[in-house]
Amino acid sequence: MPYTVERASSADSHEITLLLRASIIELCGLDHGDNPDRYKAWLKNKTAPNVESWIDGPGAAFVVQDQDKRILGFAMGTPKGHIPLMYVLPDARLTGVSKTLMRALEDTFRDRGLDESCLSSTLTAERFYKSLGYAETGETKTQLDMTFRCFKKGL
Results as ranks from 00 to 15, higher is better:
Pro2His: 15
Pro2Ile: 12
Tyr3Ala: 14
Tyr3Arg: 12
Thr4Val: 11
Val5Arg: 06
Arg7Asp: 03
Ser9Asp: 02
Ala11Val: 12
Ala11Gln: 05
His14Ser: 04
Glu15Ile: 05
Glu15Ser: 11
Thr17Glu: 02
Arg21Asn: 07
Ile25Ser: 02
Leu27His: 09
Leu27Asn: 15
Leu27Trp: 01
Cys28Leu: 09
Cys28Val: 07
His32Ala: 03
Asp37Ala: 13
Ala41Val: 13
Trp42Val: 07
Leu43Gln: 04
Lys46Tyr: 02
Ala48Arg: 10
Ala48Leu: 11
Ser53Met: 12
Gly57Ser: 15
Pro58Arg: 15
Phe62Cys: 01
Val63Pro: 03
Val64Tyr: 00
Val64Pro: 04
Gln65Ala: 15
Asp66Leu: 04
Gln67Val: 14
Ile71Met: 02
Gly73Ala: 07
Met76Pro: 00
Gly77Leu: 02
Ile83Met: 11
Pro84Met: 09
Leu85Thr: 10
Tyr87Gly: 00
Tyr87Asn: 02
Leu89Ala: 14
Leu94Trp: 01
Leu94Cys: 07
Gly96Asp: 10
Lys99Val: 12
Lys99Thr: 15
Thr100Lys: 15
Arg103Phe: 00
Ala104Val: 08
Thr108Phe: 01
Phe109Met: 11
Arg110Phe: 01
Asp111Gln: 13
Arg112Val: 05
Glu116Leu: 13
Thr122Val: 06
Phe128Thr: 07
Gly133Phe: 06
Gly138Asp: 07
Gly138Cys: 07
Gln143His: 13
Met146Trp: 07
Met146Ala: 14
Thr147Val: 14
Arg149Ser: 13
Lys152Asp: 03
